[in-house]
Amino acid sequence: MPKIDHLECSRCHHTEDADSPKTLCPVCAGTFYVRYDLSRLKGTDPQSQIAPVDSMWRYAAVLPDAEPVTLQEGWTPMLRSRRYSNLWLKEEGANPTGTFKARGLSLAVTMARHYGLKKLAVPSAGNAGGALAAYAAAAGMEAHIFMPQDVPMANQVECLAYGAKMTLIDGLISDCAKIVAERKEREGWFDVSTLKEPYRVEGKKTMGYELVEQLHWTYPDAVFYPTGGGVGLIGMWKAFQEMEELGWVSGKRPKMIAVQAAGCEPMTRAYTEGKDASEMFQNAHTLASGLRVPKPYGDYLILQAVRESGGTVISQTDDQIFRSIQDWGRNEGILLSPEGAAATAAYDRLIENGFLSPNDRVVIFNTGSGNKYTDVIATMQRGHTNAEFRA
């Protein structure tokens, strides 16, 4: 495992050492990226550097040198569509705690334990809270979780089952973030909020390594990613840069397609209006709770990756999301999360309007198991007539 060379601000490029826990850049409050000395790996056969484990820690050669706190997260299936020969679904519901959040929180908790931290706090739209609760329990640490009161019931149950201290808030994830920010110094919490510490991105970047390895070290033409906070998309873009530096992949990077819900679309608006950052989305509402992030902290990084890749940002309504859940359940045997269904619905639209061709090789991320959303999907079902539901 490589030693961390330094931390680099993703905005102003200020550097810091990694000898102690860091949050945001002290110069501009940008997100820190972890940088390594990867010179010894350049030009090597990537397969020769893979550790013999079926988890994200197979990429230990490009992850921090620390003893992992792991529940065997990562190395999730790449499922080829039964209907579309050039479409794969990256099934992140196979992770511990049932979502891709396991990757980022495994790395964040690993480094928190490495630094000797004892109490961690996070605002969450649901799934990150459950993941932090699980990994904190595995590490023997305290987890303090703040979530909107209408998150899926599974998220609430798992936080309590793992022994976390959970607080439900009448508001959005942005309101939860304010509480953590106001109380963390007084309570002695370390804030592991999205992009406010460097290591959740490192866990999420393993999705980029995985999809390239599972496609035999080649890029797809496009990647669809449900985007609330957007750390997965940001992490994959970092992974692509690292793999190219190492010579582990060649060719054109995939178009990055960020998918939002129409009831909370700050990134779609910013992209459409040609802006470099988003504005707070007012009165956010969608049953896809993971997409209910009214202003992503890493908005500038999401927009940069989308534009550099020739991708786009697209929104889907809750009705379109529900219909894609039905479609994939009946025709593919897969129960999508609402967030994943936003991405599959977006794929249909971009094929229809010609942005993509059916011949393009595409990977869609289902960021969580639909089984974590049974109460949400039941609400969607009740909102449709029997005739619509059976059609």
Rank of each mutant, 00 (worst) to 15 (best):
M141H: 09
G310C: 07
S250I: 10
D17L: 05
Y59D: 06
S48P: 00
L233K: 09
V109C: 05
T31D: 08
E210T: 08
H384C: 09
Q316K: 11
Y373H: 11
H216C: 03
R269V: 12
A29P: 00
V192W: 05
F355L: 15
I4S: 10
R186I: 02
C9E: 02
G208F: 06
N386E: 13
T379Q: 14
G311E: 03
N331F: 13
P68Y: 04
D191N: 15
A112D: 03
R80Y: 01
S106F: 08
S106K: 08
A288V: 00
S174Y: 10
W217A: 03
P46T: 00
D37Y: 08
S174K: 12
V259C: 05
Y33S: 12
D327Y: 15
A391Q: 11
I314H: 04
A387P: 00
W189T: 12
S289Y: 05
N353T: 14
A261Q: 04
F281R: 00
R200G: 09
D45Y: 04
N366M: 05
T97K: 13
S193Q: 12
E210D: 13
A61W: 13
V201G: 01
L211W: 00
A112S: 06
K204F: 09
T317I: 00
S81G: 10
G74F: 10
A288M: 02
A305Y: 11
Y59N: 06
Y115S: 02
V293S: 01
Y135H: 10
G126E: 03
L120T: 06
Y115Q: 00
G230T: 01
W237A: 15
G354C: 14
F355E: 03
K205P: 04
V180G: 11
L63G: 03
T23L: 07
V313A: 02
F281M: 01
Q72N: 15
W248T: 10
R382F: 03
P338C: 12
E16S: 14
T15I: 07
C264F: 06
L120I: 15
V362W: 04
E158Q: 15
G370M: 04
T110I: 03
I364E: 00
T385C: 12
K295W: 08
A108N: 11
I302A: 13
G228L: 01
